[in-house]
Design a protein around this nucleic acid. Structure first.
Lengths: 248, 248
DNA sequence: CCTAAGCCCTGATTTCGATCAACGTTCAGC
DNA sequence: GCTGAACGTTGATCGAAATCAGGGCTTAGG
């Protein structure tokens, strides 16, 4: 164990050594001493699908890095209508800085593993490390871009386009490329049909019908309800509705 | 005390003295010397309704504070379908930090006045003033909250609820209270019916019908197509669909 | 084993909002 | 004055997706 430590990683906590959040996540912004300080207060959790991580209007007492799995962020109306307003994948940072209470719900969509930190530790780091704030800021802006992208999907795309767009987004986030040349992809849907419908603002029946339709047309293959193979991403992309590029 | 403040404000550029952005906007984070430095590079513009401020996929060479008026942020599909993904009011900060190219369109919805800064000035300030970054960060998070709030509206509300929600949002942003006790409000709609429909993901005909319906039911009064009076905000709120509070 | 619950698919019917169409008003320009 | 364009309203019709309903598959538990 000590043998594997080389000069460069000498200050880095063992737990963080192989952590993805240290590379692409917010921890990548931290110097070894700050990282060590944070690691001392961190704790890892494995969470079952369906477990609520943050309740709406609940006090937020910790922040987390998503290490694996998918977390869904939801908002609900009082009559039960629900909308998924975001999905978080590794190594996203989970939690809303600067607010005592969350305005949204966070729930494990799949099995999820988290690396959690007490609120105070994050707040202290934000004071001490501008680079850390910088990273959090960038992630927030990315989430804003994504939210706005989905506003277009929710407001202006048809049901077939919505489902295709969803599959494309998932493929890009967790899909493993089968054959890069053919631009094919394969992945496990991280959520039920009902969840997908809450994400796309349609009903689960419609999601089901559209998936069937894509399967019939040979755009996707489905095994076990969850496992999806996209043989040609291009064909899927063509079903997503005119791509963003404002043709002026 | 008064003397002391006078001494401190002596370093503040004349233009900034009465500027709202210095109070509630991002400039509020700046010390007099930083403010002076920024003011030297700033320029004010008055812009006609309909003028494009930032084009999609266009290089961003300046950032701005909205001093008055309303700016709409839009995204379009290549076949012309359009979605308004955000509205900015004074004293919001306009522009996407960290990205060379904008992914969205910004257009003056009403007459707008801006205080603009060259990209380099903002970037320098972000390096020098953590407090400034902090403010920008907070605004981004607010915009994220708003975007997610609208995702619920777009995905899960009916047309009548969408229009009511829109009126409520406008009233809260630019409405002047007529009678605080009755919680009434009065305002000028900052956009056409077509714009409203692009914001709500419906057609302008539907917007028109829903406004008529609200007028018939005595919830609002409309003069000149633009001027709207809400006699009782409570009645309007009741038409917005179950309010966010996740009643579990 | 059987049963019940959860998830998914599919068919029949309904409905909300889109689409198509017509008309009124205002306003800029000739 | 007239004309055309932009904006808004209203009516008639259509269609995409919701709703309602039923059935199959898998899994957990008695």
């Amino acid at each position: 164990m000590t043998l594997r430590q080389d000069i460069h990683s000498s200050g880095i906590p063992v737990l963080c050594l192989s952590c993805e959040a240290r590379h692409r996540g917010v921890c990548g912004a931290l110097e070894p001493d700050h990282l060590a300080q944070l690691a001392k207060t961190s704790s890892r959790h494995n969470i079952e699908p369906g477990v609520e991580l943050i309740g709406d209007a609940e006090a937020v007492d910790c922040y987390s890095n998503v290490l694996s799995g998918v977390v869904k962020l939801t908002k609900s109306l009082s009559d039960g209508r629900q909308q998924i307003v975001g999905l978080q994948f590794a190594p996203d940072f989970l939690g809303r800085p600067f607010k005592m209470k969350s305005a949204i719900n966070a729930e494990a969509a799949t099995a999820v593993s988290l690396c959690s930190f007490p609120r105070a530790a994050i707040e202290r780091l934000m004071k001490e490390s501008p680079e850390f704030v910088h990273r959090l800021f960038k992630q927030a802006l990315n989430e804003l871009d994504e939210a706005r992208e989905w506003m277009v999907t929710l407001g202006r795309k048809t049901a077939p386009e919505k489902v295709a767009s969803f599959l494309l987004m998932i493929a890009r986030n967790i899909g493993s490329s089968v054959d890069p040349a053919a631009r094919s992809a394969c992945f496990e849907l991280p959520m039920t049909r009902a969840d997908i419908s809450d994400f796309l603002g349609i009903t689960n029946e419609t999601v089901s019908r559209q998936l069937t339709s894509l399967r019939m047309d040979g755009v996707i293959r489905i095994e076990n309800n969850r496992r999806v193979t996209v043989d040609s991403m291009s064909r899927l992309e063509r079903r997503c509705g005119g791509r963003g590029a404002t043709a002026v």
